[in-house]
Design a protein around this nucleic acid. Sequence first.
DNA 1: ATACCTGCAAATGGTTTGCGAAGTT
DNA 2: AACTTCGCAAACCATTTGCAGGTAT
Lengths: 136, 136
Amino acid sequence: MSNIEQRCIDAGLKMTAPRKVILQVLAMAGDHPSVDEVYARAKEIDSSISIATVYRTLGLFDELGFVVRHEFQEGYSRYEVSSEHHHHLVDLETGKVIEFKDEQIEKLKSKIAHDLGYELVECRLELYGRKIKPDE
Amino acid sequence: MSNIEQRCIDAGLKMTAPRKVILQVLAMAGDHPSVDEVYARAKEIDSSISIATVYRTLGLFDELGFVVRHEFQEGYSRYEVSSEHHHHLVDLETGKVIEFKDEQIEKLKSKIAHDLGYELVECRLELYGRKIKPDE
DNA sequence: ATACCTGCAAATGGTTTGCGAAGTT
DNA sequence: AACTTCGCAAACCATTTGCAGGTAT
């Protein structure tokens, strides 16, 4: 039984077939799939699943903190299994999402908020860039 | 004639009544109004204006770089007259948007992108926080 | 005159939701 | 049995768009 599955049970959720399928999809996902992608992957396991359930389940998992919902500048949401705090760089040409972590940025963010008289609660930091090719 | 109005003419845009009204609204706005807010303010000047025109005009001004479109985590867009590069801190309690600039952050962003093999093209940096009250 | 613009209303598209049926505990 | 959860289809809602009439240049 997966880590999240146990946490679902602890949270009092019923372990239904669709949820197990979505959990399985998330466990296998090393990327940042959109709802449609999660739906497509889930359907390969059980074609009877409904996209409404995918939306509901991902929303639920987000509320419970099992996944993180991102809205990069694409017009739809992507989800990732939550892990250590990090930010993202989006490849403007391929759409590929790269994760990064930077201690200096973390400190700077808090400091800036503080200097403005605010306690930093959350933040969104996304870099959008183009891959540098050695030969140009 | 406003600065942007001149730039519209230079860009070859026809200076129609609706555009002048929206320009006037933007010139008066010191904040980050949503489309609905721009629409409401514009209607006070000329009630015949259509929200489709507000959407079209703001989209056009955004393309031309006269305004900047933001999508804070609210489910709709806000616009601001473009000025010097800066980022935003959103007050989670009031929704108020505070602008800030930080040279260190700018350098760090580029460095991070570079270290990942990318040229930084654009970025989104939003802080969300709660005001620190002296008595707590 | 002729592009370009506008208002209106309909369409879009991702996301949410009401409902009755089905599943979990 | 009691309460969730599901699939389906309809509803939502911000935004976009087709169209036919209007307007700046």
